[in-house]
Computed example of a mutant assay.
Amino acid sequence: MGNQMDRLSHLSYAEVPTVDPNGVDTEDGPRIGVSYIFSNDDDELEDGCAVDGTEKDPNQEEKQYDQRDEVECAVYNRDECIYEKSAKSASLEVYSPENLLNKCNAGDLVEFVATGQYPHWAVYVGDFQVVHLHRAEVKNSFLTDASQGRRCRIVNDLYKFKALGSDMVVQNAMEQVGLKDRELSWRNSECFAAWCRFGKREFKMGGEIRIGKQPYRLKIFMSDKHSHVLEFQSLEDMIMEKRRNDHLGRTAVLQELAAHFSSLLEHTSIH
């Protein structure tokens, strides 16, 4: 696939710093920074695939989407919060595609969600249609077709950037329709849709120079008192990890972190 970068494994957690989004350590528990480089193939798993990437059994009943399994998180660029998602937020209420149509305005960002799948983002352009990046091509589809039976919601407020005017958002989206493979500048549907709405080059591949610093921090809320922070060189790297967590779900992410902390304690006790 065009614009594909070599996938790198996770760095050793023992080799990276503990950080806090405000620059000070608190008693919220361990925070470990790490940077990733990903390929842009996560959208390939959005439909027709199980969590492990294998083909789903068409006769298997789809699990109902459970908002309680949302991964609650916040993203900081240095000290500024640029993204925040809480499962308790009323703005994250999910609807059927048909019901969402009554709530959409041109230029809105729409997210399609389903258990065990990456979230899929699109730009509503009016007349029941969305523009979205799907399987390495920017497409103009009816919202109900793009949803593929998934639940959906309007996610204009997750990113804290100032939005462009609705006409410009729609224009940004429509001008990209038909782009595919090596012509693309985005690694997934979320980066594409967010770029259309906010116009920030940071959502594009190579939009930021990687110079060793890691200004982006993804804070995962494990409980009311504990959180875990990962550190990234670029916004698009952070988005890829955030999407991976959304794909896994809260339960699996917490299990993964618990296994990691257990491994760290074991390693420390041995040495």
Rank of each mutant, 00 (worst) to 15 (best):
F128Y: 09
V130N: 02
V131S: 07
H132T: 13
H132N: 14
L133F: 09
L133D: 02
H134K: 09
R135I: 11
A136N: 12
E137G: 03
N140G: 02
N140H: 11
N140D: 10
S141N: 11
T144H: 05
T144A: 04
T144F: 04
A146F: 00
A146K: 01
S147P: 09
S147C: 15
S147V: 07
Q148C: 12
G149H: 04
R150S: 11
C152D: 05
C152Q: 08
R153Q: 14
D157I: 07
L158G: 00
Y159S: 13
Y159E: 15
K160S: 07
F161M: 07
F161H: 12
F161I: 05
F161Q: 04
G165F: 05
G165A: 15
G165L: 12
S166P: 03
S166L: 08
D167H: 12
M168E: 15
V169H: 01
V170E: 04
V170H: 01
Q171W: 12
M174S: 02
E175Y: 01
E175P: 00
Q176T: 14
G178Y: 04
L179W: 06
L179F: 08
D181F: 13
R182S: 14
E183T: 03
L184Y: 06
L184W: 08
L184I: 10
S185T: 10
W186K: 02
W186R: 03
R187G: 15
R187K: 11
R187Y: 09
R187P: 00
E190T: 05
C191K: 00
A193Y: 04
A194N: 15
W195I: 05
W195G: 02
C196K: 08
F198P: 01
F198M: 01
G199R: 07
G199V: 11
K200S: 06
F203G: 04
K204H: 04
K204Y: 01
K204D: 01
G206S: 05
E208T: 15
I209P: 00
R210I: 14
I211M: 12
I211C: 13
I211K: 14
Q214R: 15
P215C: 08
P215V: 07
P215M: 08
R217M: 15
L218W: 11
K219S: 11
K219N: 14
I220T: 14
F221E: 11
M222W: 00
S223Y: 03
S223F: 03
S223V: 07
H228C: 13
V229M: 00
L230A: 08
E231I: 00
S234C: 07
L235F: 12
D237M: 08
M238D: 03
M238S: 07
E241D: 12
E241Q: 14
K242Q: 13
K242G: 03
R243M: 15
R244G: 05
N245K: 10
N245H: 15
D246N: 14
D246Y: 03
D246I: 02
H247A: 00
R250P: 00
R250S: 12
V253P: 06
V253H: 08
V253N: 08
L254C: 11
Q255C: 13
Q255W: 05
Q255T: 10
Q255F: 05
L257S: 00
A258M: 06
A259K: 11
H260A: 09
F261T: 09
S263G: 06
S263M: 08
S263W: 07
S263D: 10
L265W: 05
E266F: 03
E266A: 10
E266K: 12
E266T: 14
T268R: 13
S269G: 01
